[in-house]
């Protein structure tokens, strides 16, 4: 019989797989099968298609123009083996209008995350942003750095890309946001700021929106993003209405 761990009440503090019990050194059978199932769900999230038409329809209801572009990776398998193709557009130099902040939504490694969280996050973010974001650009088979090219084409001062993160066992649907000041092809990851783990059991839409708005404001003010721009939104005196 598996030994039940005496501290199993601690499970309510974390979604981590704690107090699993053990037979000798091994996991009990239900816990082994839980892991197999979670792995299967994560693999499936990776291959879910981006629902670009319905996201565009919801953006239209918010009064925001949008369009869908494709990266140079024609399908999921090529996308996985050739990340370089996911960082550039299939058609170079499409005609795009100018905007101040380039907002990009890309499927990334979890289209499921984008389908679930992109619109609710935007609803929380939009009231906090200082300036225009239209048109929003959706990208199929996109990687983070494709926002450099798109931001450059939109002549934007800054780009923010909402993208599905690598699906985890407990988080097949985690959304990430990368912010880059003065986007242009060739920017490195050290020049970006990232907010990750946006999902129901992770960072809430409201907290994420606050951090994103803080980073965008600071980036525009200090004219940089990356390792020299720290997320100190928690330590700053944010006026509170709750007490």
């Amino acid at each position: 019989m598996p030994v039940q761990d005496r501290w199993s009440q601690l499970r309510r503090f974390t979604p981590a797989r704690i107090a699993l019990g053990a037979i000798g050194h091994a996991l009990p059978t239900p816990q082994v099968l839980d892991l197999q199932q979670a792995h299967a769900e994560a693999k499936d999230a990776l291959y879910t298609p981006l629902e670009d038409a319905s996201i565009q329809a919801e953006l239209a209801l918010l009064g925001i123009a949008s369009l869908t572009l494709e990266s140079a990776a024609p399908d999921r398998d090529t996308y996985l083996k050739r990340p370089d193709l996911g960082r550039i557009l299939a058609t170079p130099h499409p005609e795009l209008p100018s905007t101040d902040i380039a907002l990009v939504i890309a499927d990334g490694l979890s289209p499921l995350a984008v389908n679930r969280h992109a619109i609710p996050l935007l609803n929380a973010m939009l009231p906090l942003l200082p300036t225009a974001i239209s048109p929003v650009v959706l990208v199929k088979q996109g990687r983070v750095a494709i926002a450099d090219e798109i931001g450059f084409l939109l002549k934007a001062r800054l780009s923010a890309i909402l993208i599905g993160e690598r699906p985890g066992l407990s988080s097949p649907d985690s959304l990430g946001v990368y912010i880059t000041y003065s986007p242009r092809p060739g920017r490195t990851d050290a020049e970006r700021n990232c907010i990750s783990n946006i999902r129901h059991d992770g960072l809430s839409y409201e907290s994420a929106a606050r951090r994103i708005a803080y980073l965008i404001r600071e980036a525009l003010h200090r004219q940089l993003t990356g390792v020299h721009l720290k997320d100190e939104s928690e330590t700053l005196a944010i006026p509170s209405t709750s007490n």
Partner: peptide, 24 residues
């Protein structure tokens, strides 16, 4: 990592149980 599932970095590593297996 608890149950080999890193809920922050979204990847699978080795678990506490895995180390016990090796020591055993």
């Amino acid at each position: 990592v608890p149950g080999s599932d890193d809920i922050m970095l979204a990847y699978q590593s080795t678990s506490f149980h895995d180390a016990l297996y090796i020591r055993d």
